[in-house]
């Protein structure tokens, strides 16, 4: 790969790569601060100190990461599906009022309206078209369920560790699913995602960010809903 081509790939994928890099830095930061916080707590309860390596293998670390992942994927899943059917007048995050629903085959360029450069599954019709037509939301849903599942298993192990260290009986996974700890971890993440999404949808009506595709053009009227109608 030439230097020229590397530069081009980096530029064309700058958004995904920058966020991927920031994710890795944040995760490393979470691991470092997480082990420090864990050891601080151990000190106060007379437990043994653990290394970073052991912390990375702990259920406590796994549960902390997974509980945040699940809420992010829930947020995107809900947003992707909700915006098919719900609109917000004047928001760039929304279709126009009256455009609710999944659109005609012609609008969506599927089946016989597919073009030569359309994705293969959009051209094929049948079940493949049905699946591919919802693949973005479905992948988010699968990742949400998988990460919520991971949170439940890791959170359960972490919870039982605490139970044992305070000489209480461990609980079963089914018990943990109805335990306050599981729902506290879950809902504290959901509420923040839902607030952020709701406020983004309505803030985008009246506020602008020059140059961002998440915003209308600065001079666009408040009642204009979709950014591409200008």
């Amino acid at each position: 790969m030439t230097a020229e081509r590397v530069r081009r790939v980096l530029r064309e994928n700058g958004l995904s790569l920058a966020f991927g890099a920031m994710f890795l830095v944040s995760l490393a930061g979470q691991a470092l601060s997480g082990v420090a916080a864990f050891n601080e707590q151990q000190l106060s309860t007379g437990g043994e100190q653990i290394s970073l390596g052991r912390y990375l293998l702990s259920s406590s670390f796994a549960a902390d990461v997974a509980e945040n992942w699940q809420s992010e994927y829930l947020q995107f899943f809900l947003y992707i599906f909700a915006t098919v059917w719900l609109v917000q007048h004047g928001s760039t995050e929304s279709k126009q009022v009256g455009e609710e629903g999944d659109g005609s085959d012609k609008e969506q360029r599927v089946g016989r309206y597919a073009q030569p450069d359309s994705p293969r599954w959009a051209r094929l019709g049948g079940w493949r078209e049905v699946v591919y037509s919802r693949s973005l939301g479905l992948v988010m849903l699968v990742l949400f369920i998988a990460s919520w599942g991971a949170q439940s298993v890791a959170g359960w192990a972490a919870y039982n560790n605490d139970q044992l260290s305070t000489r209480q009986d461990p609980v079963t996974w089914a018990d943990y699913l109805v335990a306050p700890d599981f729902w506290n971890r879950t809902l504290q993440n959901w509420q923040s995602e839902l607030l952020a999404v709701g406020s983004m949808a309505i803030f985008a009506v009246f506020l602008r960010q020059r140059g961002s595709p998440e915003s209308k053009r600065v001079g666009a009227p408040h009642q204009e809903t979709s950014s591409d109608t200008s």
Partner: peptide, 30 residues
């Protein structure tokens, strides 16, 4: 397009490895 596809697959692989790892960690501690 190939660079873009590599980023796409990279994200998917990263997420799947993470999910398998966290689930396995939880199970290993039982």
């Amino acid at each position: 397009v190939n660079g873009t596809k590599a980023v796409f697959i990279g994200y998917l692989v990263l997420i799947v490895i993470g999910l398998v790892y966290f689930t396995a960690l939880g199970m290993a501690h039982q």
